[in-house]
């Protein structure tokens, strides 16, 4: 599978502005797809990389609605908002929801393209991060459930003896598990193992309760 080209999704109810903006982005070298409404865009949302450039004020579903819907979707593309005039409450709300940028419709071209670039870059970063995590997590897939339990204790810095007592097995069995884990993951030290598990976010959000 070749590296997918990021697509700039432009959403605006004003056909004339939609065409003009798409034209500029294409001339600047982007792949562009246009939508006359937020509903159209969400219906065609795929997996691909890119970003969304949308008008804030549209009949029916407006820009903020689109952003909220996007956050619940699988492909959380960054959003660049365009507006006739930025009023403070709307801007604040959009930024809180994680708007990449907030530009007026007549912002300088450089600012607009920079914002699109930033959004695409952020999307790319997110995707790279996702890929890395996925790859890391893939390495842990070969571990058995018992090995994962042992790994958890190891990452939390427990000694073999403690682990053996908690699990009700012999210290030797724990050692065998540890050897299997390090060889499967290809790490040499406990420190390295801990770093790897943390990077994969393996035990995030599961606070440890020690007896």
């Amino acid at each position: 599978m070749s590296e997918p080209v990021p697509i700039v999704h432009v959403v605006d109810d004003d056909a004339s502005f939609l065409v003009a903006l798409a034209r500029l982005l294409k001339a600047a070298g982007y792949s562009v797809q246009t939508y006359a409404s937020a509903v159209d865009f969400l219906a065609q949302l795929g997996e691909g990389a890119g970003c969304v450039v949308t008008d804030l004020r549209m009949p029916g579903m407006d820009g903020l609605d689109l952003q909220q819907a996007l956050m619940r979707a699988a492909n959380v593309l960054p959003v660049v908002f365009l507006t006739g005039e930025g009023d403070i409450p709307t801007t604040v709300r959009a930024m809180r929801q994680g708007a990449e940028d907030f530009l007026t419709k007549r912002a300088p071209k450089e600012d607009l393209l920079a914002a699109v670039d930033r959004a695409i870059a952020r999307d790319a970063r997110r995707r790279a991060e996702d890929a890395r995590l996925r790859a890391l997590r893939a390495r842990f897939v070969n571990l058995t459930n018992r090995e994962l339990v042992v790994l958890r204790h190891v990452v939390q810095g427990r000694l073999n003896k403690q682990i053996a007592i908690v699990l009700g097995v012999s210290e030797r069995t724990v050692k065998l598990h540890r050897t299997a884990i390090t060889s499967k993951l290809g790490v040499r030290s406990v420190a390295e193992l801990t770093r790897l598990a943390q990077a994969a976010g393996l035990f995030d959000g599961t606070p440890d309760e020690l007896p």
Partner: peptide
């Protein structure tokens, strides 16, 4: 006024983007 400024910024924005695109072409 805000609705009207939106009404005006649509065509003005389109003009600006078109002009910029033309420069690139």
């Amino acid at each position: 006024a805000s609705a009207l400024s939106h009404e005006l910024s649509q065509p003005l924005g389109a003009i600006l983007r078109n002009a910029e695109a033309a420069e690139l072409f």
